[in-house]
Design a protein around this nucleic acid. Structure first.
Length: 669
DNA sequence: AGCTCTTAG
């Protein structure tokens, strides 16, 4: 490119012409497979063009005749939108016309849409109104190997739908390792196996597409590292001094480690020999404000080498160009739900082999790369092959509720590609029963259970919202539901500005606890923060997440109005101090009606104990209740990290309310 | 006295 002396008259093509992609030569065989086989499993490497090309091949081959649609699901919203935009460009139409996408809050499709990209979760919700997904002729489940709960459930539904709709074609895109699991999942029971080892019951065909990646040289430690964080920092400096140019991506487990590493590298880089290239260390994690995340995508200034310290967000969700070196700590923070205690934990665990391969692959996207694994070859050999599917380590209550709403009564016998442990299912059923979403026969109750399933919030919050009209605080709970579903990230945290952030929080603090504090923050945001850009800045509030809260609140409000519930916004706005007290109490009572299972009592030493007295809980330092005295409280969330179990979003209640609103649940007390 | 991996509706 640099050889051309034509200046700005030429710009590089944004995309490779489709004909140059390796997938082009597989066009006919792919179409033949889809035509003849009900399920096609596409094993495609990075850069094979499967997500962009297959839908176009199908459209050209007539799969959209009679107004039918080709649906392609993605595990993430960004993927659904960016791939749709790209395919629309290649197709030569405006996004939303022949090629469109649909994600929560954004439906960019029309009557003429033939190729539709959407998230897995949204397609499951479409099944609530169209159980056979009859608008679609082909459904392609992209990135199925990631084994998210939604794509697992979607595959189970598709298997069921296929029996009633033999015309439906299913395409699953997968990594090599899982392809056979998907094939076996769709196989129909047969006794015999043919001599070539092929099951006669297979209805799925596997096709492999080569990708366009460069070779990666993988290096291990000779002896285990005592401290992988220190080792990561020294490895980065070694690469910087000994290896040719190219940016570095370092996989660590969380924010704290990342900030430490960034700090350490910037300190040590001052000791580099004079005249050498400088290092630009950058953090990357999901909780980082968007503007700071953007730095990692910018080209480093001349004479700087970019080093990105990242969480798992860079493993699949985010792609950064120009990475030549990967440093892999071998650890990831993984969420797991304990069905015995109902407590989620978040702990650093060794990654799987497939994760390690994925991380290494990040080095070979633009030219040959190197991956430095901060563990021994032996340690690598002892890693598990693949990650434990999300469905086996999550609170299943929201999904059991969705399955029930889809008419699947016997969820224990639902055809899961990997069955969740029975304990997880039972715990979910028990919770839904205690909330009144299921009756004595484990059938979905109407209208309560059905409405809970339709609301896009967790079951306990759904119950709270649907109870709110009888406490006269529906408007307030629309806000609280929206704010809690943001999962933190309401406050911007700058390094070394902890004091300011504390005092900013105190400006909105409510004596009753975090839920009313969140309500105050939201009120202030919609009255001032949305118009004055300084407001969020001065109060260290995250404009983007609060804007999202406004969208979520509006969506929830539409649902409740559809249920015929009247949302009176006038009462919330102006209230005298006596009605304000009463209003606070109604909110606390209503919260108890949905979150009674999340109750705790403060001990003289300032920690909390759950109702059965078996678990010690700590108020999270971000809570208003941190370092305050309280009696009984309700909390939104409980999570074990490291050695402590923290509760977040905590509000005072009266003990007697527990018995008043959940007599069944607490009858033995 | 001291802190959440990621993602979706």
């Amino acid at each position: 490119m640099a050889d051309f002396d034509l200046g700005a008259a030429f710009i590089p093509a944004l995309h490779k012409p489709a004909a140059l992609l390796p997938i082009a030569k597989h066009r006919e065989s792919l179409l033949y497979l889809v035509e003849t086989s009900p399920v096609t499993i596409v094993v495609g490497q990075t850069g094979s063009g499967k997500s962009t090309q297959i839908p176009q091949f199908l459209e050209q081959a007539g799969w959209c005749a009679d107004g039918k649609v080709i649906g392609i699901t993605q595990p993430r919203r960004v993927a659904a939108t960016t791939v749709a935009i790209r395919v629309a460009q290649e197709f030569g139409c405006e996004v939303g016309k022949e090629v469109g996408y649909s994600i929560r809050f954004e439906d960019v499709t029309s009557e003429s849409t033939r190729i539709k990209f959407l998230t897995d979760g949204l397609l499951i919700r479409e099944a609530l109104v169209d159980p056979l997904l009859s608008r679609y002729s082909v459904i392609m489940v992209d990135e199925a190997h990631e084994r998210s709960i939604s794509s697992d459930i979607l595959l189970g539904l598709l298997k069921k739908i296929r029996k009633k709709r033999p015309d439906l074609r299913i395409i699953i895109s997968s990594a090599t390792l899982q392809a056979e699991d998907f094939r076996d999942f769709f196989a129909e029971p047969q006794e015999e196996t043919t001599t070539d080892g092929k099951h006669t019951g297979d209805i799925a065909s596997i096709v492999s597409l080569e990708g366009r990646t460069y070779p990666i040289n993988i290096l291990y430690l000779e002896t285990p590292a005592e401290d992988y964080l220190e080792k990561a920092v020294s490895t980065v400096l070694d690469i910087h001094t000994n290896e040719p140019k190219g940016d570095i991506l370092v996989f660590l487990t969380g924010r704290e480690e990342i900030e430490q590493a960034v700090q350490a590298v910037s300190e040590r880089s001052t000791q580099l020999p004079p005249g050498s290239q400088s290092i630009l260390p950058l953090p990357l994690y999901a909780g980082l404000p968007t503007d700071q995340q953007m730095y990692v995508f910018e080209e480093a200034p001349e004479n700087y080498r970019k080093v990105i310290f990242s969480t798992n967000i860079s493993e699949a969700s985010v792609t950064i160009d120009g990475i030549v070196y990967v440093v892999d700590s071998g650890f990831v923070k993984l969420r797991a739900y304990n069905p015995k205690t109902g407590i989620e934990s978040l702990t650093a665990t060794p990654i799987s082999k497939s994760s390690a391969a994925q991380r290494a692959g990040r080095a070979g996207r633009t030219k040959p790369g190197k991956c430095f694994r901060l563990y021994t070859d032996e340690a690598y050999q002892s890693l598990s092959e693949a990650n434990v599917p999300e469905i086996q380590r999550s609170n299943l209550a929201p999904f059991v509720l969705q399955l029930k709403a889809l008419g699947i009564d016997n969820v224990l016998r639902f055809d899961f590609i990997t069955s969740p442990p029975a304990e997880l299912m039972i715990r979910a059923l028990e919770l839904l029963y205690s909330l009144g979403a299921l009756d004595d026969y484990a059938k979905l109750t109407k209208p309560l259970g059905l409405r809970m399933a339709e609301l896009a919030v967790e079951p306990m919050m759904a119950k709270t919202l649907l109870s709110a009209p009888s406490f006269g605080c529906l408007s307030e709970f629309l806000t609280i539901a929206a704010m809690t579903s943001l999962g933190g990230n309401i406050w911007i945290q700058h390094e070394g500005e902890k004091k300011q952030s504390e005092s900013a929080k105190r400006r909105f603090a409510a004596e009753e606890g975090d839920h009313l504090t969140l309500l105050n923050v939201y009120q202030a945001f919609v009255t001032k923060g949305r118009k004055e850009s300084r407001f969020c800045h001065e109060n260290l509030l995250n404009f983007k997440t609060l804007t999202r809260a406004v969208s979520i609140r509006a969506q929830l409000k539409r649902y409740l109005e559809r249920f015929g519930l009247n949302v009176d916004e006038s009462l919330a706005a102006h209230s005298t101090s006596t009605t304000a007290n009463n209003r606070a109490e109604q909110i606390q009572r209503c919260l108890t009606a949905g979150y009674f299972a999340h109750a705790a009592r403060m001990q003289p030493d300032g920690t909390f104990r759950n109702v059965s007295g078996t678990t010690v809980l700590h108020a999270h330092p971000s809570s208003i209740m941190f370092n305050r005295k309280a009696g009984w409280v309700i909390f939104h969330e409980v999570m074990e990290t490291g050695s402590k179990t923290f509760v977040r979003d905590v509000t005072r209640i009266e003990k007697s309310w527990l018995l008043e609103y959940a007599p069944e649940f607490y009858k033995t007390g």
